[in-house]
């Protein structure tokens, strides 16, 4: 593969970087089956940040890992279609995966300490990736690594490249991992809660950095934190029990949520000026996914539940040109 000088231009045919249709993932063991993702559809446009927001167990991380085929093949049954550029990710031969990962689609993780290799310096790990994908010389790769470290705003980058992951602070480790993910100029970046383990003052630095780097990439950003999503996402997808229950432009979703779950999530998120008021909570807890829900998964916790909610999975309702909600109470446009 020749070394591209700019971000690769990817397109799935109609201009989207990523198109996911009817993605389903279940984990099968001898004892039980867990239905983690149950029919997810979305697309990602170039230069767009899609925020996937959900609580633990909602399937957001599993969705992300399915996109880059990181799920254990012996236990995870994945079906549906995932197009990244013109790569049919779920049907790609294993041998081709390695060249697609890194060059076309890359991923950053919550815990850089476990994602980076502890026995090599971060500079070596970045250069190794560049050499592997772009078959350039080590000297060129090391120069690129230095560029990348400057790009992700690591102070005194030359010395830091010679550091091992454990010698770096949490914020610097996350910057190193971002540099590694960007080393082959991927068109799509998957980010799995990359700021969750960081302190508040460092989190905002990393969010601002990602926002700056993202201008020429598509990013799918998974988080459980509405505030973080509000700082980075262009579009939001709210995930509950393995399904997207609402999608739409971030400002609209945060200001006028449609789905009762999104409303509940917003009103139970503590922010300033709530002192003295009782928090509006969502009763109960998220469902057990050992049974495939054949009704609205949120029905047991929903204050507006109707009989019809328990009878079938609600169809997606197009409430406005760019807004969808899976709720029978939402009126179509």
């Amino acid at each position: 593969m020749e070394a591209a000088e700019s971000t690769q231009t990817l397109a799935t045919g109609d201009g989207d970087l990523v198109r996911v249709s009817d993605l389903r993932v279940r984990f099968v063991t001898k004892e039980t089956t867990v239905y983690a993702v149950n029919g997810v559809d979305f697309s990602l446009a170039p230069g767009e940040v899609l925020g996937i927001l959900g609580e633990s167990g909602s399937g957001k991380t599993v969705t992300l890992r399915a996109l880059i085929r990181l799920l254990p093949e012996d236990r995870a049954q994945v079906s549906g279609r995932v197009l990244v550029g013109d790569n049919d990710m779920l049907r790609l031969p294993k041998g081709d995966l390695q060249s697609v990962r890194g060059r076309t689609i890359a991923m950053i993780f919550q815990e850089p300490m476990t994602a980076l290799d502890p026995v090599y310096t971060v500079g070596y790990q970045i250069a190794e990736t560049i050499v592997r994908h772009e078959s350039c010389s080590w000297r060129e790769a090391e120069a690129r690594a230095l560029d990348l470290f400057e790009q992700v705003q690591v102070p005194s980058p030359k010395q830091r490249l010679k550091s091992y992951p454990h010698e770096l602070s949490g914020g610097l480790r996350q910057r190193a991992m971002i540099a590694l993910a960007l080393s082959c100029r991927p068109g799509v970046l998957l980010a799995d809660e990359p700021t969750t383990a960081l302190d508040a003052t460092v989190q905002i630095q990393i969010l601002l950095l990602l926002r700056e780097l993202q201008k020429e990439m598509g990013v799918i950003f998974v988080t459980h934190d509405m505030g973080v999503a509000g700082e980075i996402a262009d579009r939001l997808a709210i995930m509950y029990a393995g399904r997207l229950v609402e999608t739409g432009p971030v400002t609209q979703v945060m200001r006028e949520p449609l789905h009762p779950y999104t409303k509940g999530l917003l009103s139970s998120t503590v922010h300033g000026s709530m002192r003295g008021q009782r928090l509006q909570t969502i009763e109960g807890s998220p469902p057990n996914l050992e049974e495939l829900p054949d009704a609205c998964s949120f029905a047991p916790r929903c204050p507006h539940v109707r009989e019809a909610c328990r009878e079938a999975v609600p169809e997606p309702v197009q409430a406005a040109p760019e807004r969808m909600a899976r709720c029978i109470l939402v009126n179509p446009a």
């Binding site: 602070s169 508040a200 003052t201 509000g230 700082e231 945060m254």
Partner: peptide, 27 residues
């Protein structure tokens, strides 16, 4: 002050544009 202004704004129209602090807390 820096800690407080590092909080996400909860308003996508009024995002934080400059990090209030640079770097990590020292060892």
């Amino acid at each position: 002050r820096a800690l407080l202004s590092s909080r996400p704004s909860m308003d996508p129209e009024r995002r934080i544009t400059e990090p209030p602090l640079s770097g990590d807390p020292p060892n």
